[in-house]
Design a binder for these strands. Sequence first.
DNA 1: AACACATTTGACCAATGGTCAAAAATGAGA
DNA 2: TCTCATTTTTGACCATTGGTCAAATGTGTT
Lengths: 186, 186
Amino acid sequence: MKFQREKVIQVARSLFVEEGYQYVTMRKIAHVLGYSHGTLYYHFKDKASLIHEILQQDFAHMREKMTQATQKQGEPISQLRTVIYTFIRFGIDHPHHYRLMFVEKDPDFAIFQLKEADVTFQILLDMVHQAAAELQDLPPNQIAWMIFMAAHGFISQNIADQTPWEALSSLAKHYIDMVIQGLKKQ
Amino acid sequence: MKFQREKVIQVARSLFVEEGYQYVTMRKIAHVLGYSHGTLYYHFKDKASLIHEILQQDFAHMREKMTQATQKQGEPISQLRTVIYTFIRFGIDHPHHYRLMFVEKDPDFAIFQLKEADVTFQILLDMVHQAAAELQDLPPNQIAWMIFMAAHGFISQNIADQTPWEALSSLAKHYIDMVIQGLKKQ
DNA sequence: AACACATTTGACCAATGGTCAAAAATGAGA
DNA sequence: TCTCATTTTTGACCATTGGTCAAATGTGTT
């Protein structure tokens, strides 16, 4: 039986997602796969580079969804609303991925997280630029950053208890209204 | 020389605060104190109960500050603003503590975390009740929850890179303005 | 001095991430 | 089918961690 790189990634992802990066041991991953732990170190430099590869895939998935959202029709403000909504929904729908990507803090992949968070931020920033005429006179990147923080707050507080999206969608709408209303020109 | 419980807590606190819970070893704490690591386990059940005691003190401090803020003079809205400001400032000033209490999902602290988050929430909720006349027609606990999420978003995003408070205080004010403005009656 | 009790030590344990020489599997050419 | 070099896999091994515990040391009281 040949060693399947992608299989390792799948198993590792589901373990990281269920139990958290620091609570999943390389030995456990190897054991689930039926390998000795040394084997993992032949195929992956270390634990960090394994999680790194997993995150790379998951971030790409989220970026794709958000970019799709920016291409919808509508007023700039309503587009902005849609992008925030998409980001929040992604977080609630993929709580474990979100934790790995935006919450879990580990020097092993801190730089990577920062880079990916920045891509997300750039998508938001574009939307803010387009809606600038209707927003307050603050630097666009400051506005985008505030939106990002607010969205992150919503997601990270609500993924604690795994509430499904249906139970949150109304709250999310009110919350986004709050953010938009708070940023509009008076 | 007698073993000083409070001295241990001080040393441990400063290490935890500077380097983070998981990166501070019991051996290191003991070494700084000039003790063998076994001694710590005579005085504290385990590492978790040591940090637990530290957090208990520091969060009591935070509660006190927040409660003080509620007793300041002024319009209900401005009081609310002050409470949010105090909460955010505490988070930025104590990033590692904040992470342990509100971000990290460690079964060792789960119950403790829940209780602390709830106390914080209750203080916010009181303020919201008092300012209800000027706020939107939404259930007060929903408004308080939105404020909590927003504040949490600000803190948890900004503690990533250990930015000092001075660099954030202006942003924090704008952010709180956004939240308040977004919640006011139109 | 003798005794009881509180405190401290450091050897020890199991688990971790990680390394590495040696063993095993693989596959291409004869 | 038999080499034999190359790729994989193994498991003993290392340092470090949180934690335990019997034994050693200190302390105060009579």
